[in-house]
Nucleic acid binder design. Structure first.
Length: 290
DNA sequence: TAAATTTGACCCAC
DNA sequence: GTGGGTCAAATTTA
């Protein structure tokens, strides 16, 4: 995570400072208000704007920075994507089915992204589980996923494993970069253009519930009852997790923690969100973004 | 019936 | 020689 912004360029440092100074301060005050402890603090609306502006400014700094490693995909080869002619697959394609078994090369120490979360996260991409292994000296098996769109040449894979020291956590290691068109980067997109009267907050799919694949992972790590819960409790995910936040966002006096967001999805006009949860997700994403 | 998952086998890197 | 990553047939699910 830190690697994505590491390197100490002044622009990135400014972005980080902007996030830490304005964003976090405003967020802290806002949280106080929400918790009922902020009688002397600025209005929640103003703070919300400050938070969004802080995030927006930081993203602008990062996006406009030609040395930005995180957003400028064309800049740095983050992934050790193998050349087709060198890939094991290309060598295997002409061989018989039997001869192709196990026809691969072990992954070298290529660059990866690691993420730990309390549940296998839905990162917005569609994954297909292709294997599970018991790992030596590991309490929990490791599950292997690859992008559903591998037939389109997408080489992205990930490994998910429960953390031995803290079994409620799941460690996800991403390998390779998605080249498929079914993109859903778990980034937050803020449209804060002055001409726009409303704020567009996009969580893509990172804000949604577990995918079927993640449930499958849970089911293989937990008793069958968990699998049943997964099926029963997870609602059909919406096609988008984009939220259009009205510029005159107000808080429900009776329930100040509850905020209604109008969704950009045509089939669901409004989505009610408990604000602290939304806030935590936003801020957590930005902290991880660093 | 197609798509996704499970799982034993295969085999390369270490 | 062994562990780990992947394959693919069998099975399950929607």
């Amino acid at each position: 995570m830190m690697d994505n912004l590491g390197g100490g360029s002044s622009t990135r440092m400014k972005a980080i400072e902007e996030l830490l100074r304005e964003g976090r301060d405003s967020a802290t005050q806002l949280r106080s208000i929400i918790n009922g402890n902020g009688e002397n603090s600025p209005s929640a609306q103003k703070l919300v704007k400050e938070v969004f502006m802080s995030f927006h400014n930081s993203l602008l700094l990062l996006n406009n920075n030609p040395t930005s490693e995180f957003h400028d995909a064309s800049n740095v080869q983050l992934w050790d994507s193998p050349k087709l002619e060198d890939s094991p697959e290309s060598n295997c394609k002409n061989s018989t089915v039997k001869a192709r078994r196990g026809c691969y090369k072990r992954r070298r120490t290529e660059q990866t992204r690691e993420k730990e979360s309390e549940a296998p996260i839905d990162d917005g991409h569609q994954w297909r589980k292709y294997g599970q292994k018991e790992i030596l000296n590991a309490k929990f098996p490791r599950s292997y996923f690859r992008c559903t769109h591998r037939d389109q040449g997408c080489q992205a894979t990930k490994q998910v494993q429960r953390v031995q020291e803290d079994p409620i956590l799941y460690k996800t290691i991403y390998y390779g970069e998605h080249s498929c068109k079914n993109m859903g980067n778990p980034e937050i997109i803020l449209d804060m253009s002055p001409s726009s009267s409303s704020k567009f907050l996009s969580f893509n799919n990172s804000f949604s519930t577990l995918s079927k694949q993640e449930c499958a992972f849970l089911s293989s790590s937990f008793p069958s009852s968990v699998k049943r819960e997964c099926k029963e409790e997870i609602p059909p995910s919406t096609s988008s997790n984009d939220y259009l936040i009205s510029s005159d966002l107000t808080f429900d006096d009776a329930s100040p923690r509850h905020v209604t967001l109008s969704s950009s999805t045509p089939d669901s006009e409004y989505k009610a969100v408990d604000f602290p949860d939304l806030f935590d997700d936003v801020f957590q994403d930005f902290l991880e973004f660093r």
